[in-house]
């Protein structure tokens, strides 16, 4: 069947990185077995793909790499049968991938504006993609100030540690890292929950767009803070993750009222979400 959207393409696991102390978060760098497929795999930060292991199953994950990077990167938390099988993969193994699916963060709308990025836990993946994309020296001048508040339970749970340490000292991005409880580790230095830290950082809402991705509880407490800072519902974008099976708006699972997270999202503006059932 030509162009079968359910057919995974072969990708090779190039590198596996353990991201956290709990060792339940791993990043997989993937390359296409058919190198020409990489050129055809055009995506925008915020989109997602399905990883597939024949005989085990498949599941959707946000793409953590930026479009300009050679490998397609996914960071996966081990929670069930399929993700456990992924975690057992050794470099060199060939698995399947299909996508990219979904819309993306509103890069066009962000042009010429300040960007505020708010993230908690391991949802930082597609926002890493976004930050790498925005910080590209060719692209960076197209955006105003970039502020990011990113938090996790503890220092050991923060993703992409080498990169975020580098970003902390970069003048291109104002990065605020925080943890729920300070440990013996001298890094990072801020204790507090993401919404509270965001309140202290208090980025300007003037000519600014906010991108939010995190667990439902973080989302719930972040919005009032953004609202108090003057962000309009049209200028706040959330990336959602509902259960899904197809990625292309057929299987029904991920609906929010009349919209599908897979096809109409996963990124929605807060004003869009206010008109939809809060079933996410």
């Amino acid at each position: 069947m030509p162009g079968n959207p359910y057919l995974p393409l072969d990708v090779r696991v190039e590198k596996v990185t353990v991201e956290n102390d709990a060792k339940d978060l791993k990043t997989f760098d993937l390359s296409f077995v058919d190198a020409s497929a990489r050129t055809a795999f055009e995506f925008i930060p915020g989109q997602f793909g399905f990883l597939s292991i024949i005989g085990t199953g498949e599941a959707p994950f946000g793409i953590a790499s930026a479009p300009s990077e050679e490998f397609i990167k996914y960071t996966v938390k081990r929670v069930g049968g399929f993700t456990t099988a992924l975690h057992e993969l050794e470099p060199g193994t060939v698995i399947g991938m299909r996508g990219p699916w979904g819309n993306s963060y509103p890069l066009d709308l962000m042009q010429g504006k300040d960007v505020v990025i708010v993230s908690g836990g391991f949802s930082f993946t597609t926002l890493r993609s976004t930050i790498v994309h925005l910080l590209d020296p060719k692209r960076r001048p197209q955006f105003g100030k970039i502020t990011c508040v990113y938090g996790a339970r503890s220092a050991g749970e923060l993703l992409y540690k080498d990169e975020i340490k580098a970003w902390e000292s970069s003048s291109d991005i104002d990065l605020h890292l925080c943890v729920d409880k300070l440990g013996s580790d001298p890094w990072p230095r801020t204790e507090g929950l993401v919404p509270n830290v965001l309140k202290q950082v208090a980025p300007s809402s003037k000519n600014a767009i906010a991108l939010v991705c995190g667990p439902p509880i973080m989302i719930r407490f972040t919005h009032p803070v953004l609202e108090a800072l003057g962000f309009r519902p049209d200028d706040v974008f959330l990336s959602l993750e509902n259960r899904m099976k197809c990625g292309i708006g057929k299987c029904g699972h991920c609906n929010l009222g009349s919209k599908y997270v897979c096809k109409d999202g996963p990124v929605f503006s807060y004003s869009q979400l206010r008109g939809l059932p809060a079933e996410y």
Partner: peptide, 28 residues
């Protein structure tokens, strides 16, 4: 609505889809 699942035994099998229902708790 449908679910997608792999059935595998001794290296052989199939990726299948089966009808699913939004009335089931696990669906969402």
């Amino acid at each position: 609505c449908f679910d997608v699942t792999d059935e595998e035994r001794k290296g052989r099998g199939a990726r299948i889809r089966v009808w699913d229902s939004c009335q089931f708790c696990i669906y969402s």
